[in-house]
């Protein structure tokens, strides 16, 4: 077989392979997207409102903020703190201990103050702070 014929066949085969690759991608991309993006709760554009009278002094309220657990603390002195409730160690959700006025991570016993600073345990840094504003007795987080 002469060389030009072989070259022509190789080019054709290359074209077929490219077409097959495109078809494969066209099929797998929707499958990937189907797997990748779960339906998310679109609650009020990333902002959450909590009426202040829902939280007693020295208590905390947990809620979901942008799909992640968050917490609003009303300390004994009446001041507020909005924090991510996700432990920076390995991602467990911290618990509010009302009698001790601190946060405990149940997974590896990390302790945090009501402001999120690390008291003891393995957490490498403080709980992330979330900006909030207080107006007319309603706390708006985010």
């Amino acid at each position: 077989m002469d060389k030009s014929k072989r070259k022509f066949i190789n080019i054709c085969l290359g074209g077929v392979a490219a077409l097959a690759a495109t078809a494969f991608a066209a099929v797998t991309y929707p499958v990937f997207r189907y797997y990748l993006i779960p339906p998310t709760d679109k609650n009020s554009g990333g902002k959450t409102s909590v009426p202040l009278n829902e939280i007693a002094l020295g208590d905390a309220k947990f809620f979901e903020f942008n799909g992640v657990a968050a917490v609003l603390v009303r300390k004994q002195d009446g001041s507020l703190a909005a924090l991510s409730a996700v432990c920076p160690h390995l991602g467990c959700i911290v618990q509010w201990e009302k009698d001790r006025q601190d946060f405990l991570c149940p997974c590896h016993a990390g302790y945090f103050t009501a402001d999120g600073a690390v008291i003891s345990g393995p957490p490498p840094r403080a709980l992330a702070k979330i900006p909030f504003s207080l107006a007319n007795g309603v706390v708006t987080i985010g």
Binding site: Y35, L36, P38, T40, N66, G67, V68, L90, G91, C92, I93, C107
Partner: peptide, 25 residues
Amino acid sequence: TVATDCASSIPFIGENLVELLRGGK
């Protein structure tokens, strides 16, 4: 929670990978 969170220590794609594994945050 702990096992999937380990993937977040991978640079750049870690956070996305965790979300992919969990199907959410």
